[in-house]
Nucleic acid binder design. Sequence first.
DNA 1: AATTAGCACTCGGTTTGGTTGAGTGCTAAC
DNA 2: GTTAGCACTCAACCAAACCGAGTGCTAATT
Lengths: 348, 348
Amino acid sequence: MIEKELDERKTKILNAIIKNYLETGEPVGSRTISKYTDLNLSSATIRNEMADLEELGYILQPHTSAGRIPSDKGYRFYVDHLIETKDQQVSQMKEFVIEHTEKMEQVLQQVAKLLANNTNYATMITGPQLHHNKIKFLQLSSVDDSHLLAVVVLEGNLVKNKMLEIEQPLDNESMLKLNMLLNTNLTGLSIEQINLGTIAALKEKAGNHSNIISEVLDAVAEAITEDEDLEIYTSGTTNILKYPELSDSQRAGELLSAFEEKNQLISLVTENLSDGEENTGIQVYIGNESPIQTMKDCSVVTATYELGEGVKGTIGIIGPKRMDYENVMDNLKMLKSQLDGILNKPKN
Amino acid sequence: MIEKELDERKTKILNAIIKNYLETGEPVGSRTISKYTDLNLSSATIRNEMADLEELGYILQPHTSAGRIPSDKGYRFYVDHLIETKDQQVSQMKEFVIEHTEKMEQVLQQVAKLLANNTNYATMITGPQLHHNKIKFLQLSSVDDSHLLAVVVLEGNLVKNKMLEIEQPLDNESMLKLNMLLNTNLTGLSIEQINLGTIAALKEKAGNHSNIISEVLDAVAEAITEDEDLEIYTSGTTNILKYPELSDSQRAGELLSAFEEKNQLISLVTENLSDGEENTGIQVYIGNESPIQTMKDCSVVTATYELGEGVKGTIGIIGPKRMDYENVMDNLKMLKSQLDGILNKPKN
DNA sequence: AATTAGCACTCGGTTTGGTTGAGTGCTAAC
DNA sequence: GTTAGCACTCAACCAAACCGAGTGCTAATT
């Protein structure tokens, strides 16, 4: 069945076509290939091979009497089989200079920007999902007569806070008690681990302040999930205007809107997190393979980065189908490893 | 000197030209005006008047034998003299439905989006400057052995926090003392009011923990200024692609980049805040009048909103020069008043 | 003196038709 | 299996022709 659809020569030719097309963006003809490669074949022969390749679906003609361009299938074959993975040294070279700034969100924004500058494509990055992060510290304080402030510190020193309204002021003693109660019972737990049992137990112990407990818990849950969950940072979105095949205002508008309405990008994140990610953790979506319909004329490359036991975030690069996959994937690999180091000891 | 450059009739004609051009976006000819207006003049007469108007610089011809389009001077005259301010009732009609959500930033983002949807232009909005906001509550807590968490609540219940690293853990008692000290000395002050004297006094009282005091103060200052200061929210930026005169990928790219690199927008904010703002607090920049060079083919309308004694933010709308100034200004006026109500009692 | 009808003129936009050249597919020869 | 050669295709380019909206000017009208 899989008795090599493509022989050595066809492979070489396909590779040459794609390489050339990635550089020029123009349909490539038989004569070009004839000279480009070291095969020493006449253009006529190449033509025959190209006809075959077309029949097999790896390349296609924009119109009769034009050169060939890679099809989605062609690109797929290219990224799966033809990319030469660079030796590690070279990759090491271009280390990213990430300022070790305070706020997580600033780091992320910065990474997105760096990546965009390096690749000339649009980029996105999500913060890590926090569901599994454990609560490290929790504090309730009375701000004024009608407001309590709940502050939660998660592992990795991420701080979240939420204001609560209360009907009547809480006296100092109750406050202390509540704080004690909350801390002893909740620290070390992740939001997922707080179940009805825990809550009931807490409420009971809180006595006449049980209503506050549930409010606090709600607040904690909300602060952790709702917020960072769909926080997606993008950069270099206007880069897509640099590629003529994407820059007519119709298409470009839709694409750019997708970046602005960041919630459209979520499917990239979720898709990626669930997917079995082979070896590298890098996913390539070519054209229609993309989970986002508006990106059917683009290619999307995503990578997940991890910071300790299952807490993951996603980085993505979106560009034209004729993107420089090698460079992009190298960059992502680079980042993956570096993010590990940086995010594992964040300040905030 | 100012003996009315334009007589009644010329004014009417100019008005008609602009109105028509705003609708169609096409150069408008004499015949159109002849029918459009109630002046009952032949196209020939209009032509003569138009020649005059052109000489005076209010309109111009894209090329011979084309209709006329308004010049910047023409637009300026239009917004200064010709806009009919709608009666209040009509404006009242389209009240904005702003969800009273928790986070300030969400409100702002939402406002930007609403405005963009309503107008079909690009919008931006800044959070209020917080320098003058007073500190309402301040708390230091020990998160773990090497980290303190400083939480500041400002008037209006804005919460800021900052993580501090310390060399050696603080015992409970010192912590209590410090908190007491900070609260009694700093609450009620705005960041501007904290001067060297206050700091020195505090340090003295803190005794052997004086180094922590200055760290805390730094943190407070940083949290308040650096952060919200240049936080600019944008929305509907892709709307500009809807206007052909702005949507060629060259120009559009520059514009959109300006929105992405939000710091380019800052000049709009500062310019506006310092400017004497006549009566309405609404500023219109037409074409080259804009403080941002990349927007020389656009018009920019900004408004400041206020929430109590000098604390201001800025809203801006950016669109083509032929924007619907009336609608835009109405919307802004509307928002100005509503934001007052909403932001004066925010939750967070 | 102001208005208008009429007319020649201008000039961007569109259509038309021809030319060019890159590139193909096919066939016949090597 | 490879190649030279040739007829064919078709987008891209270009010039000529045409169209029509719109102008400026002049002479007649009010």
